[in-house]
């Protein structure tokens, strides 16, 4: 990606953050990832929210359930590889009918050059769907805000579990 078009190409991430804040999300948990770097920086800089760095992604699943018990809203920002770490904890979400929103920055699909990323990247959707999480893919910058808005409504109003998959068509494949 050229530096000159970086701001416009990632402007949607600022808008996505605004959507999450408009839905009163106050617990942003994350495992650091280049695809989420803007969202992560925004939540760290925001004094009105909790930015929670995780050691492993499933902590964010448990955190979201605890947040719901206390009437707060959480979102989990993770990479596709982290989805695999979450599987058993999604028992809590599915069995407890907890609202759950995650934004997944995809690796291991469109244009991936690192063979280590392919297996989990390809398994993200079947694994999440097997555990009752609805998946919505975003491949165009213009679709990101409507998708996150729709997902947040499904999660916080309808009590669903939804993953928004931010594809490598959207984020760009990391060069290898």
């Amino acid at each position: 990606m050229q530096a000159s078009d970086k701001s416009t190409a990632t402007g949607w991430q600022h808008d996505v953050y605004a959507v999450l804040r408009a839905h009163d999300v106050t617990q942003f948990s994350y495992v650091p990832d280049a695809g989420h770097i803007i969202l992560i920086d925004l939540c760290i800089a925001d004094p009105d929210v909790h930015a929670i760095a995780l050691t492993t992604e499933e902590e964010g699943v448990a955190l979201a359930a605890g947040a719901n018990l206390g009437d707060a809203r959480a979102v989990l920002l993770m990479q596709s590889s982290g989805v695999g770490n979450c599987i058993n904890f999604l028992s809590l979400i599915k069995g407890g009918k907890f609202p759950f929103l995650t934004l997944v920055s995809m690796r291991g699909e469109f244009g991936e050059g690192n063979p280590w990323q392919i297996p989990m990247g390809q398994a993200v959707r079947p694994v999440l769907e097997a555990m009752g999480v609805i998946c919505m893919e975003v491949s165009e910058p213009d679709d990101a805000v409507p998708a996150v808005e729709a997902a947040a409504t499904m999660v916080y109003k309808a009590g669903s579990a939804v993953a928004v998959l931010l594809t490598q068509k959207l984020l760009g494949a990391k060069a290898f």
């Binding site: 106050t26 499933e58 699943v61 359930a65 206390g70 959480a74 904890f89 809590l92 069995g95």
Partner: peptide, 20 residues
């Protein structure tokens, strides 16, 4: 009280503590 999701208690407590 959980009977599954082994390992989730502390993380769930954190989410609840931040919320309340």
């Amino acid at each position: 009280a959980m009977a599954g999701a082994m390992g989730a208690a502390a993380g769930m407590g954190l989410g609840l503590a931040l919320a309340q």
